[in-house]
Amino acid sequence: MKYEEMSDGAINLEVHYVANDTPRHHAVIMTKDYCNNPSDAWPIIIENKITIDPEGSAWKFDESSADWHYEDGVFNNVQCHNKPLRAAMICFLKMKGAECKN
């Protein structure tokens, strides 16, 4: 998936499915805004060891410190975006996608 092209609402829904291990065919009423609300996003950021680092006018996020690997070595994904929580959630989704492939 190209998460960078998705709306905040679509990312929020995808994060909800992945974080709560909810089957996609279940109807969901979204009450969380992972892309914009720190109280919703922060538990995921901490649990998955996602690093937040300001870089110029954008924020940089990576999970290079996370203690897991994929087939070719240590997983490392960097996202830069002016919306820090959105970028962190994209990192989370990419991490989980990489875990599922292994």
Rank of each mutant, 00 (worst) to 15 (best):
S57F: 12
N36S: 15
E47W: 02
P54T: 09
K83C: 12
K32M: 14
D62I: 11
D53T: 14
F61A: 07
D53C: 09
K49W: 04
S65L: 06
D72T: 08
H69E: 08
V28W: 01
T22P: 00
I45V: 03
P38F: 07
D40W: 00
A58T: 04
I52M: 12
E47N: 12
V28F: 00
V74I: 10
M30G: 03
D21H: 07
I44C: 04
D72R: 14
V78M: 09
S39C: 11
K32T: 05
E63L: 03
H16K: 13
E71F: 02
A58E: 15
E55I: 11
Y70A: 03
T31M: 14
C35G: 01
Y34K: 01
H26L: 15
G56E: 07
L85F: 03
S65H: 06
K32E: 08
N36W: 00
P84Q: 09
N77F: 07
A66K: 02
W42V: 06
C35L: 00
N36H: 04
A27M: 12
N20C: 13
P23L: 10
D53P: 01
R24E: 15
D21I: 06
G56P: 05
P23R: 10
V28S: 01
I46M: 03
I50F: 00
N37F: 05
H25Y: 12
L85Y: 13
P84T: 04
Y34F: 09
Y34I: 04
M30S: 11
K49T: 09
S65K: 11
E47P: 01
Y70C: 03
I52A: 05
I46A: 05
E71P: 03
F75H: 11
A27H: 03
K32Q: 07
A19R: 03
V74M: 15
S57C: 11
E63S: 12
V28R: 04
E47V: 03
P84E: 03
A66N: 10
Y17E: 14
N82K: 10
L85P: 12
T31I: 11
N48Q: 04
I46S: 09
A27E: 08
D21P: 04
H16Y: 11
D40C: 08
A41W: 02
W42T: 13
Y34E: 07
F61L: 14
S39N: 15
P23S: 11
H81L: 11
V78R: 08
N20I: 00
A19P: 00
S57M: 15
E47G: 06
D21C: 10
P84H: 07
I45M: 13
V74R: 15
W68D: 12
D33L: 01
D21E: 14
D53G: 06
N37M: 14
S65T: 08
F61T: 04
I50D: 03
P84V: 07
K60M: 02
P84G: 02
H26R: 05
K32L: 07
S39R: 14
